[in-house]
Design a binder for these strands. Sequence first.
DNA 1: GATCCGAATATACC
DNA 2: ACCGGTATATTCGGATC
Length: 831
Amino acid sequence: MKVKFIPLDFDYIDKRIEGEDKAVIRIFGKTDDGKRICVIDTADPYFWVLPKHNVDIKKFSEKLSKISMQHAGRHARVIGTKIAKKSFMGAEREVIQVFVNNPKDITSVKDIVKTFKETEEKKEIDLNFVTRYIIDKKVTPLRWHHAEGKEINDLEYGDLDVDIILEASKVSQLEGKAAEEEFKPKILAFDIETTEFDIGKGEIIMVSFANEEVKKLFTWKKFKDPPKEVDFVKNEEELLERFVSFIKKQKPDVLTGYFSDGFDLPYLRTRADMHGIKLNIAWDNTNVSFIRGRVPSAEIRGLVHVDLFKFVDNILSPNLQSETISLNDVAKELVGEEKLKVDLNKLTKEMKDGKVTKDEEMRRFALYNLQDSVLTAKLFDKLWPNIVEMTRLVQEPLFDVSRSSYSHLVEYNIIHNLHRFNEIGENRPIREDIEQRRRRPKYIGAFVKEPTPGIYENVAVFDFRSFYPNVIVSFNISLPTFREEKCGDCFETPEFEYEGKKRKFYFIKKKGFIPSILNELLERRKEVKQELKKHRTPILEARDYAFKTLSNATYGYFGFFGARYYSPKSAASIAAICRHYIHKTIEDIEKAGFEVAYSDTDSIMFLLGKKSEKEALGVLENINKSLPGTMELELEKFYKRGIFVMKKTGEAGAKKKYALLSRDGTIKIRGFESVRRDKCGLAKETQDYVLKAVLDEGNADNALKHVKKVIAEVKGKKIPASKLIIRTQLTKAIEEYASIGPHVAVAKRMREKGIPIREGGLVEYIIAEGTEKLIRERARIPEELDEGEYDTEYYINNQLVPAIEGIFTVFGISSDNLKEGKKKQKSLKEF
DNA sequence: GATCCGAATATACC
DNA sequence: ACCGGTATATTCGGATC
């Protein structure tokens, strides 16, 4: 039979074939007519041996082919070898491909190979067998394929809950765009509520499900007038059984949650184990299992589990406005909908203590739980284009891509393209290497020019288009192309300081595979941008985002200790070249008669002065003529006005802090308190007002009036407490702090009161009046205080004034007091 | 005991 | 542990007078 299908999940299982312990690949997917399919296929497990020079490769190959051993209760052996001409680190050489019986045997066989004196290196020893299959068979996740073969109907490949089991004779990807035809998986979002926060410690009270068609909630806490979605069950045991049966009945392709790797599924599994219930929701009827990691991943074979929190945390969060990546904030920003508000602490405590909760409150709790599932489902739909595009780009299974950090995605993309360069992949670094790499000293990074504080008219901003990626491409930078010494015709860096010495590094001109792969990302992004000009679709936007973020992450990957192609010298070279070009460009702009106000990494802000925009664009054109390779300077925008302020300490202008007013009236604020989440709302709002007023009007008259009013309101305690809450993240466990700041002190109080707070959480507090000298001794949980019980002095002197005084100094207000520390604050209060 | 200053910490920019 | 370095500001906490 022949079917059209799309692979969603992959795994491999052991299978005895003709008396041998082989491994077969199981591809879990959907056919074009919506049936569940499991395609069975195989690939050859192998790795590469690079012999030392002067080794008789034929003899060595024969020697390798005879490896056979008993290990961990299995017969591990080499089933064949092949001599091949391949490339490693960009250099051609003769190598031996060593085929083993089963992918699990690579570990033990390579250890034997290591002891042979002929062996120089062994490579691709740590590639997952699924990755091996995807590369060698060109069967890639979330792309449409044809599969031909024999349909079977028994338990040979597990207790499979699928419509078709196909032993494939051939699996081939569809040609061109047909492979990337849209696919929308059937999803099911879920969420649980429990009596205790710690995994498995309390009981699971309720579980809810949602997708576009279905909403359902199971709970054993009965209450009057339940919403129609609610099904009451006897107890937690039945709740867990219904969790399983509901999923089995719905037959989703994807199960999605928010923080479900770290909370919902570990909780469900722990409680199910306690009741002796198997959560056999996988397509092969196996239990939910956990893969070790910093935070474990919950895996369900076939049914792909996507924890949206991980995808948001790894991939989206740097580009979100939200102050936290909680479901509430992220859904608000991306879906335009929020969580329902309930007092979770009170409710769960009541249930833990066995107290009766009012029917109305219980009803609201159920709706809250349902809404979480609904939000998660909506968020999934919103993020699906991003997840698909990233998965299709880097070609690893959806399960892995949805949990990967950028460094891993960059690496997957490299690994899946190596075959086009006949290149053998480098191994993952070993623990000792990682430890050493982590200790390496920092290298010099980007250049930031100190601005002169002031307010300026007509500010032009130029920036380099994808600066770092284009430098990598134009100078062919990467580990394999790197040379310590000058080597014939090669690119060379400017002289720069590296590990305390003046150095120059070199890169061969023969196109390296990493710069080539990166160049393809940049080229494909250009095409997408052209298409986007014609029509904007979520898919195209997601593709653009994937290309952009992955190319930007390549530079960081070079300096990342876990990278297979780790090369801090390459990273330092990129930074040095970028510094050289930004300096040169600043000079060029200055030589053309402009005053450069500020520059950070890849952007330059300068004043038009008496010159025209046209003249500025002429300079841009000239600069571009002189830039090498694919490098390009672009006009970001012409701004009407801009402001730079002084640092709080010392005389210098503050870097990474400015505000620009566009011609259309919008304001771009960078670095100021108003964009920092650890400042109270009052300080942020007031500063925002002041910045807008001074930029709009070019003077500080109205801003000053406003500030006087606000200070009077603070003194009169007319400011609501909500605007005085300070939010600070607890970045490590409470016990680990060497210095106890206000937020740590408050976190301790929270823990004493039984309010859940943990590493990574945001601590909210208000500074109360009192005689205690240390601020942390006056820091209170907002609920502890009555309205108006705040320290006006603190909010004026430590929040409000610091946020706005630098801006007023630009206009000569109270600047005479600037050097005298605290006195200046008094003078501002006089206004 | 007040004051100074560096360390610790959080967060932003690119 | 899960991409890099550059930079500012706040609060603590120990050294110093």
